[in-house]
Design a protein around this nucleic acid. Structure first.
Length: 153
DNA sequence: GCCAACGTTGGC
DNA sequence: GCCAACGTTGGC
């Protein structure tokens, strides 16, 4: 199947593009997703899929760079960790409720492409990212949307 | 810090 | 299965 394109939101205080860039050889587990729609998208991800990293709830809101999927969905360990904020007592090991994927650095943009700029891109008008009240933290991108973003970097 | 919009929970 | 209450997200 052809490579797919995604966007994942993160608060840069938690995990930013710089955390990936810091060691480009090190895969970082993307765990803690506790939304079913976002989880389902993560389960569709394939090795080699590319992902925009979006910084939310911060000073410099927008797309900061790109990472790549290096490990497809597996049971998110944090759901079973009683010390984790993300523990889910209703999840079972035989049928884990939540999934994680591993991501690796691909590229940091010279500057963050701001949400405001993204809203101005024609090809992005149907993308959930710019819809008011949207809370989805994992968003699929069409190839057209993906290329339109790259054309503005 | 505010608050609108949304997803989830739980009583019925 | 409905829906009100609640907690969270995320831009401003």
């Amino acid at each position: 199947m052809a490579r797919q394109y995604w966007l994942m939101k993160t608060e840069p205080d938690e995990c930013s593009i710089d955390d990936f860039a810091h060691d480009p050889t090190k895969a970082i587990p993307w765990d803690g997703v506790r939304n079913y729609q976002a989880r389902n998208f993560m389960r569709e991800m394939q090795h080699g899929d590319q992902v925009f990293i979006y910084h939310s709830s911060c000073k410099d809101i927008g797309i900061a760079g790109m990472v790549e999927v290096v490990k497809t969905a597996y049971a998110d360990p944090s759901q079973f960790d009683p010390n984790s904020d993300y523990v889910d007592n209703k999840s079972s090991k035989s049928n884990p409720r939540w999934s994680a994927v591993d991501l690796i650095f691909y590229r940091k943009f010279p500057r963050v492409l701001s949400l405001q700029a993204i809203k101005g891109i024609d090809a992005m008008q149907e993308n959930p990212l710019i819809k008011k009240g949207n809370r989805l933290s994992v968003i699929p991108f069409t190839e057209n949307e993906w290329n339109a973003i790259l054309a503005h970097i």
